[in-house]
């Protein structure tokens, strides 16, 4: 597996643009089309914003992002040292509810789950380690 980028920045909204930009250029480098790159950006943003808003509970902390590529897929590993939080344990929101009624919380995690091909979470060494994976799908053979 080839590491394309590895960066650590403060867990602040001001870091978002740079982190997303890096992930985006790595995904483009991985050969994904523009739509898929935006889906990957979105899933990454949702994971990062979640950490920025909730992981450190008003204390300072960092986010570590690593992008890597092998022949099967593109992997984004996001690490924080905040409170334990497993995104996979969050239930899906009610997307059928009326706009005036619906509670929009949980939508970001829902989108992230829908858009990535695989998501893994583990807690190790006092850190949350979230892995987002987009498979590199072979082109469909022409008919």
């Amino acid at each position: 597996m080839k590491v394309l980028t590895h960066i650590t920045l403060p867990a602040q909204l001001a870091s978002l643009e740079r982190l997303i930009g890096l992930v985006s250029s790595c995904a483009s480098h991985g050969g994904f089309n523009q739509t898929r790159v935006k889906e990957i950006e979105l899933a990454t943003e949702e994971a990062l914003v979640n950490i920025i808003k909730y992981a450190y509970q008003d204390k300072d902390g960092d986010i570590e992002v690593t992008c890597s590529l092998d022949k099967e897929g593109f992997t984004i590993t996001i690490v924080d040292s905040g409170i334990p939080f497993n995104v996979l344990s969050v239930g899906d929101p009610d997307i059928s509810a009326d706009v005036s009624e619906r509670n929009i919380g949980g939508l970001g995690i829902f989108l992230m789950k829908k858009l990535m091909d695989d998501i893994q979470y583990r807690r190790a060494g006092g850190k949350n380690i979230l892995t987002l994976i987009a498979w590199i799908k072979p082109e469909k053979p022409a008919l």
Partner: peptide, 13 residues
């Protein structure tokens, strides 16, 4: 519009 995340959806809502 080129890109939207849940934050954008939330603000529309």
């Amino acid at each position: 519009l080129e890109y939207i995340s849940s934050s954008g959806l939330r603000s529309i809502h």
